[in-house]
Design a protein around this nucleic acid. Structure first.
Lengths: 336, 336
DNA sequence: TCATTTTCTGCACGCGCGTGCAAATCGCTT
DNA sequence: AAGCGATTTGCACGCGCGTGCAGAAAATGA
């Protein structure tokens, strides 16, 4: 297979201009919404463009102007299916509104600034860190020198003032979950969280434990898996439960996300031979497709991804300049 | 939050040139591998660039040259976690070698050419269709007029001569699976495939059925789920098994991928109350993380993603111009 | 030391399009 | 038919860097 394009050079605005009998700039106007151009000329130009197969070159456009209509999507933790949902929604909605999406892998080991730097070399209008923790200082460094104009934290929290946060309201979410559990009569929760790092960017654990404390007056013990993956969750849950006598055993595991919750269910059922929810109930967070399967039926909480993505578009277009926290939707299933 | 960059304009090669006391072109050389430049000057330039925080602007570079080092990744079917693995591997390896990845969503309903066209506006050096079926004619149209230079089909098959295919060798894979099933004594397989479209780009069904026919002389019946998702698989499997008396029931379901296989297992266990593998065994394809969980333990086949990604790099760099089919690895678990 | 090769550096030009303004054209009124 | 404002069109300049070549500097050999 060799290079395919038949007419060796790409067709430019000049070609279209010649074909339509106008100037190159008029061609540009024809493609620009709300440009000052007469209906007739625009139609003629677009017709010519269509027969010639012309589409404006956005690289050149971004060089000439100072916006690229390109957004960098930075993420890691590629083993959580929820990321796929986030990516799908974001790319679909962004492209639909004329934004290109540059997918960048922030490997855990290396630093986030390397990823940001790579993105900045492509003149992105904004960088969106998707559902993943990151190191504030590194980003600050990266932002100082580079040409990333906006930095958005999506589906996580950041206190960095140079940053815009778009996320599900974890406080409301954890209240819904806690209220549901109290209704159902659960009294001895244990919180299963991910790695206990300083830059954890989820408020689920603190908001749940403080609300539970407030409603019941009792503390919520927490345990931490080494990573957001099945096996670490299984190991951690086994370690905890195999020590505890049945009487003091927790009656529900509140998990920071669905991956941990599913690992917890597997541990409870297949390692410890107990039943969910009769012996121990489990809740998750995110509502990944697997939650609905008959094998799990996991009670969980769905983030308002579409609305958040719409807010992201507002941010990109400059009409949203404040942090956003939106309520999601509690989803009750058989695991509680 | 407003635009962050402190020094309002980005720093350009000219600035670095002035700081290092050389010309702008020498700065460019310092950043270009194998460029004709003395060791000393390069070090000086790079030092200056470092203190100024300069990085070459790849947009401008791609305008000036005719390569962008940008690759468009086209995909759909965002509910298969295997896509996440593919995306992760590809983005990580491509960025690692200096390629940017533009993620484009090919919605099922609309046509692939719209996605390709969007990508072509960004001067991509190649478009990679990832693990998804597509319509040949649409791509052909899109390729005719646009400036996509190379079109690669990744993890699927295409007969289009303008296209380069990089995929797992489905024939070897299905032989491994069939041999394993025959060893284990299974004799009445049914093949569970995805939607029965004309442009299906997987050879798993035909290769399995013909090899099974060859080894046993018996036909393999096939059924088709309406989509590659849990529920369609569950529905289809229930529909088939509830009609069949236990004697003529299949003893193994060979599934086109893991998603279908997991749906099949759920149907067998939770809808029909049968056991896997005692009553019916199941095999999948892809080895998504869930396969290893104790709840499923799915026998499956792992595609050689890393090697395929390496081949993709060769394709991009021009050293690979032929289709590639690589063997993967059979993974036996408890579901057979 | 000088001539010759080899290595290194500078430069004119262009990639395709956006911006902002000036010139041209149109539509309407009197 | 002239005149005025509103609308539409054309254009010089620059965005930041790559290419290919010519000239300068350094390295080599006798």
């Amino acid at each position: 297979m060799e290079d395919i394009r038949d007419n060796d050079g790409a067709v430019t605005a000049d070609d279209v201009a010649a074909a339509a009998g106008v100037s190159r700039w008029t061609v540009a106007r024809a493609f620009k919404k709300d440009a000052s151009i007469s209906r007739k000329t625009r139609d003629r130009v677009l017709a010519a463009a269509d027969t010639l197969g012309y589409v404006p070159d956005l690289s050149a456009a971004s060089l000439a102007s100072d916006r690229s209509n390109l957004v960098a999507l930075l993420t890691n933790d590629f083993n959580n299916p929820h990321k796929l949902v986030l990516l799908e929604r974001l790319t679909r909605m962004l492209w639909g509104r004329g934004w290109g999406t540059l997918l960048v892998h922030m490997s855990e080991s290396e630093d986030a600034s390397a990823a940001l730097m790579a993105a900045s070399q492509r003149r992105v209008d904004a960088a969106v860190v998707i559902g993943t923790r990151y190191d504030d200082t590194l980003l600050e460094t990266a932002l100082g020198a580079r040409r990333v104009k906006k930095l958005v934290i999506f589906a996580r929290y950041s206190q960095n003032p140079n940053t815009l946060t778009l996320a599900c309201d974890d406080e409301l979410a954890m209240r819904d979950i806690a209220d549901h559990l109290l209704d159902k009569g659960y009294r001895r929760p244990v919180f299963l969280a991910g790695p206990d790092t300083q830059s954890a960017k989820l408020l689920r654990k603190p908001t749940f434990t403080s609300y539970w404390q407030q409603r019941t007056g009792t503390e919520v013990p927490a345990i931490h898996a080494d990573a957001y993956a099945f096996d670490p969750a299984i190991d951690r849950v086994c370690a905890m439960l195999s020590e505890a006598p049945a009487e003091t055993r927790p009656d529900v595991l509140v998990c920071e996300n669905d991956i941990l919750a599913i690992g917890a269910m597997d541990a409870i059922r297949y390692r410890l031979g107990l039943r969910v929810p009769q012996d121990i109930a489990v809740t998750g967070f995110d509502d990944i497709p697997l939650c609905a399967s008959p094998a799990y039926g996991l009670t969980t909480y769905r983030q308002p991804i579409t609305q958040l993505a719409e807010k992201l578009l507002d941010v990109l277009e400059g009409t949203q300049t404040e942090n956003v926290f939106l309520p999601g939707r509690f989803v009750a299933r058989e695991s509680t």
